[in-house]
Design a binder for these strands. Structure first.
Lengths: 132, 132
DNA sequence: AGTATTTATTTAGCTAGGTAAATAAATTTC
DNA sequence: GAAATTTATTTACCTAGCTAAATAAATACT
């Protein structure tokens, strides 16, 4: 395996695991947080909007939302178009979000703080160049 | 979610999916290939050596090796220390490896070819800087 | 209007990562 | 040398991605 890919995959797993560790105090997994954050920024979204935005397949989002719903973080309501379900943050989620956001910002700062802004930009550019 | 992380996770998934697609012709998944390649380079290894080298937890490797064994890619034999299992490539795997390697090299060249060697090094350095 | 196609979501089932705990063999300690 | 600890592997069970196929509602076609 190309060492570059190996390093990329490993760092990706490492960051995910760290994030999960940090989010334990809020009883959340990183992917669940990603969805909550997405809803916080965009307001209510359909499942399709969510999975297209996050660049993930639909079944992953169906499962995650089901879990988030039973845990009380989101509500699923029927849209005008009765095929679609609109997902909104629950009042509980709205209340918890500020403190979770604080946790996340600290984590991100710690994780990425060793890179200058230019290096972060450079990193994104290099990532972008890896296409198929 | 920090856009840098988002981009990192996404690219990681994207490359994995592409790799899976390319490996379909050999009836392999990317993680299975990673293990075969590892064994090819190091010769017979215990499960512990494999998961430590690949930086993954033991159960992931147990499962993957079990699958690779039933598919005929590897053999599991008891070591002198009877706690450990030594994994070796099967003759079938040895025979298939060259052509699979060719597939992989072409894929990696296509995927990473847009980056100069300096950019690849730079990328690794930046990745390295993201610690916890 | 009735049929065909598209679109949104879900279900089923796979790989692949993780943790926690069980088991069995080897090693250390007393 | 018996008991305690460590080490290697496995099992059970979770999240999280994927594809393929099912379902149900909306839209397009004739």
């Amino acid at each position: 395996m190309n060492p570059l890919f190996h390093a990329l995959f490993q760092k990706s797993r490492y960051i995910t695991n760290c994030l999960n560790e940090v989010l334990k105090q809020h009883n959340l997994y990183s992917s669940q947080w990603t969805i909550l954050y997405c809803l916080h920024n965009h307001g209510p979204m359909t499942l399709t909007q969510i999975w297209k935005y996050l660049n993930v397949e639909a079944p992953s989002i169906t499962r995650a939302i089901t879990r988030l719903e039973t845990l009380g973080w989101v509500l699923r309501v029927e849209g005008e178009d009765k095929r679609e379900k609109i997902v909104t943050l629950s009042p509980y989620a709205e209340k918890q979000l500020p403190v979770i956001t604080k946790t996340i910002l600290a984590f991100e700062e710690e994780m990425v703080g060793a890179l200058t802004v230019e290096e972060q930009q450079q990193f994104m550019i290099l990532l972008e160049k890896m296409k198929g």
